Simulated scan of single mutants.
Amino acid sequence: MQRDAIRTRRALLEAAERALMSHGPQVSLEVVAQDAGVSKGGLLHHFRSREALLRALCEHWIQQYDDAVARHLEPDDGRPGRFCRAHIKASFDPSIGDGPWRNIGVQSALLAIPGLFEHARINGRRWENEMGSDGLHPQRVLLIARALDGDSMTEMFDAGSDDGERVELRDLLLALTESNQPLI
Rank of each mutant, 00 (worst) to 15 (best):
D134Y: 09
M153Y: 12
L13Q: 00
A175I: 00
V32E: 05
S28M: 01
P94S: 00
L143D: 09
C58E: 11
A11Y: 01
N180A: 03
L173I: 00
Q34E: 13
E51P: 12
L13F: 02
D67A: 10
P94M: 02
M156F: 07
R126A: 09
G41S: 08
Q64F: 12
E165A: 15
C84I: 06
D162K: 01
E51Y: 06
E165H: 13
P94F: 07
D66P: 00
V31T: 15
C84T: 04
L20V: 01
I113H: 06
S39Y: 05
T177V: 00
G115R: 03
A112R: 15
G42P: 07
H137W: 05
A52N: 07
A15Q: 02
G150T: 09
D76S: 14
P94R: 04
A90E: 07
A147D: 07
R79S: 12
D149I: 11
L172I: 11
L148W: 02
Q2P: 11
T8D: 06
N180W: 03
D158R: 14
D151C: 11
D149V: 14
D76P: 02
L142S: 15
L57A: 09
S49A: 02
K89P: 07
G37Q: 05
P80A: 04
D66Y: 08
Y65W: 04
C58Y: 09
Q107R: 15
G135H: 07
W127Q: 13
G78K: 06
D4A: 12
E14W: 08
M131A: 07
E59R: 12
I96A: 08
R55C: 13
R102G: 13
G42S: 06
L29E: 13
L12M: 00
G42N: 00
I6V: 14
L20S: 03
N129Q: 13
R48T: 15
I144N: 07
G105R: 10
M131W: 02
H137R: 11
W101L: 15
G124L: 06
N129W: 10
G81K: 05
R146A: 12
G99P: 08
G115C: 03
K40I: 02
E74K: 14
R140D: 01
D98C: 09
V38L: 00
L143G: 10
V106M: 10
L53I: 03
E128H: 13
R126G: 04
Q107E: 11
V31E: 09
I88T: 02
E59F: 10
E59A: 15
R71E: 01
L173T: 02
A147W: 01
I113V: 07
W101M: 15
M131H: 03
I122H: 09
F157T: 12
L143I: 14
P182N: 01
L110C: 12
D93Y: 03
S152K: 10
L142R: 15
D35M: 04
I104K: 08
A16W: 03
A70I: 05
D77C: 08
R146P: 02
M21A: 15
A175E: 04
E165Y: 13
A90I: 08
M156I: 13
R50C: 06
D149R: 14
A90Q: 09
R121F: 10
R9C: 06
S49G: 04
E14Q: 14
D151Q: 12
D35S: 01
D67L: 13
L29P: 10
A90T: 08
H87F: 09
D77K: 05
G41H: 00
D66V: 11
S152M: 15
F117D: 12
R7F: 08
M156P: 10
E51G: 14
